[in-house]
Design a protein around this nucleic acid. Structure first.
Lengths: 207, 207
DNA sequence: AATTATTTCAAACAAATGTTTAATTTTGCT
DNA sequence: AGCAAAATTAAACATTTGTTTGAAATAATT
């Protein structure tokens, strides 16, 4: 991965998120990245492989960050869950564009390489969470019957749809005049609290 | 709206859901619907207007069904909320393809007609729910501080992402051998219970 | 400095795209 | 049956699509 690779991937990411994969042309990407049209094929082989390269790059980084939390011995199961929620929301905020592409690509369910990467990461993630929850169950702080995938779906679903519902959240709550950074900050805090509350209600006895 | 209109709209709906709007060609639609290529322009004006016609058709039906629940005088606020959750999940199950398109289109955020329709429906929905919740608050069965949009986002987010996560839910829970109708039935019941539990935990004192 | 490899470029490629045309067929009405 | 309106068709339209080409420029190696 050279600087040029990253430069192209980042611009492609923006465009795929705002126009969709099919709605973005290689000429769009080349223009945005300030490189010649032929460079995309030269560096990645094809438009499709560029998408796959983007997914590999982003998902690899994600995997490392998740494992760091789960393997952190100094955290209690409860703290691990809360940290994983915070980490997830932070990642989505940092890489909003990529998570939008992820969402769209999952709906279409077409690119087999991307779908395989996604499934693998999801199962890994669920298994890691599973180990944390079992840890908590042994310590009698978590309930016995926990539907992990359903809980994760609620977390990702809420965060993903908030990405889409931001404006409408703002309008409904009469926060149109609020400066954008302030609004984003407030929303982020509320969202974190909201997801954590849901998890607590479902996992623990103590809530 | 003639039978031909509906015939074309339904096939377009399937294709838009599985290939995306941009990934679907008018020739694809014409072939699937068994009509000549020129018929799409003849009946709808353009590919884009066909998408808009699909949204108008589906969202109009949705609006009527929601209002019927809210205006039903024989239901308590709690029953209304539960009915709205059930109705929503039923609608998504019935029109899976359309809800996938809705999701993709919201990510892209391009077609202004579609986005306007969506925003309108969402605000209407939130206001209706709001009135139900206020009703419940007067009767002291609901809490005072309820973030309606956040709750709705959790509901729609969970249901939308479950649409995408089905297979992976199945694999993680070792239900690969279960016949599909049985699995779908179980998942539907679990999902309804799950969303209702979340709502109860957030709305009521009694849970 | 010479030569080899890598990168960049404009141009061209065939295939596919949404839409329109103009002729033909079918339908509905008197 | 005769006629006007509506529906259907194959063909053509101009653009746009992803990808390739082969020459030119730049960088790296000897």
């Amino acid at each position: 991965m050279t600087k040029k690779h990253i430069q192209i991937i980042e611009k492609a990411e923006e465009l795929f998120a705002t126009q969709g994969y099919e709605g973005t042309t290689v000429r769009n990407i080349a223009d945005a990245a300030g490189v010649n049209l032929a460079m995309i094929s030269y560096y990645f082989g094809s438009k499709e492989k560029l998408l796959e390269a983007l997914f590999m790059e982003r998902m690899n980084a994600t995997k490392h960050r998740i494992e760091a939390v789960v393997n952190n011995q100094s955290l209690t199961p409860f703290q691990k869950i809360e940290t994983l929620i915070d980490e997830y929301i932070t990642r989505v905020e940092e890489k909003e564009a990529f998570y939008k592409i992820m969402l769209s690509e999952q709906v279409i369910n077409k690119n087999t390489v991307v779908m395989k990467l996604l499934k693998e990461l999801k199962l890994t993630y669920a298994r890691l969470i599973s180990s944390v929850i079992e840890e908590g169950q042994k310590q009698k702080v978590f309930r016995k019957d926990v539907d992990i995938v359903l809980m994760l779906t609620t977390m990702t679903g809420t965060v993903m749809l908030m990405l889409i519902n931001k404006d409408y959240y703002r309008e409904f709550n009469n926060q149109k005049k609020l400066p954008n950074p302030v609004f984003e900050e407030q929303l982020s805090a509320r969202l974190r609290e909201h997801v954590k509350t849901i998890f607590k209600a479902h996992l623990g006895y103590e809530s």
